[in-house]
Design a binder for these strands. Structure first.
Lengths: 140, 140
DNA sequence: TATTGTTATACTCTATAACTATA
DNA sequence: TATAGTTATAGAGTATAACAATA
């Protein structure tokens, strides 16, 4: 199927793998009405309740200008809420709502099944750990 | 820097690695006036001269409708040319021009340096081979 | 009827500059 | 002056439908 030097390059193989994973993830999350970026925001807030809006954006490498619409969308869905800082009234802290907690609890098993599908392709969690370590060294 | 479960997931780490590699690749190729997709097309044609336009598109997972502008751009730059099939006058075969061959010869060392930067981060070509194998199993 | 290349179009993601309110 | 959030906008990349020429 592939006859070029690209087939053995890092850029090409990483991109192909990323597309395969994201397509599956989009199918899983799209059925529940959210996108991969929305999911990543929910999990970050779940793990760090009350994080500053701009810090969440930076952690996920999303421009703060583009992050506004993502937060708006999740707030409109009733999954998260902005709370103004009393100390510095420029900043918003992000929190999951009760509905957001419930939504995440429902969707997490589906996400874990998604991860499990690809762990199976790799041949187990040891291979996954090995791969994640290699990938992290690429991203520094 | 990361406090979420995402940090150890396949989707997130693959995406981060892909962004790091593509940013570097865009810098390398952008300085020579082409994009990663252009480069991939040039290398495929170099390895398979006279390939059908739609087959190149399929090999690179690019929609044939979106592929037209890429081929147009490379043809406008004088790097490739379309040659009509005598047998089936619907199809175009793609070939590098002499200028295209020369351009690719000039740019390939820069691409190899780019690959080498990431192979270094991994810790050598054995790690690269290991990673490529794992990534291919992800993309099936 | 089916296929190749093409056009038009829309949608998402991303990048940048400038605004506002606060500090 | 500087920062957090916001708005507006433009550029990529990608997806789909429909067309002309050809099979």
């Amino acid at each position: 199927m592939d006859h070029s030097m690209l087939a053995h390059s890092l850029g090409f193989t990483v991109r192909r793998a990323q597309l395969a994973i994201f397509q599956d993830l989009q199918d899983v999350l799209g059925a529940r009405g959210i996108r991969p970026a929305d999911f990543s925001v929910l999990t970050v807030i779940a793990g760090n309740s009350g994080m500053k809006q701009s810090d969440v954006a930076a952690l996920l490498a999303i421009q703060r200008a583009n992050f506004v619409a993502i937060v708006d969308g999740l707030e409109d869905k009733g999954l998260i809420e902005r709370r103004r800082s009393e100390v510095d009234r420029r900043v918003y802290f992000l929190h999951l709502t009760a509905a957001g907690e419930q939504f995440l609890a429902e969707i997490l098993p589906k996400w874990q099944e998604h991860e499990a599908r690809f762990i199976d392709r790799l041949g187990g969690v040891e291979k996954r750990d090995q791969l994640v370590q290699l990938l992290k060294s690429l991203a520094e």
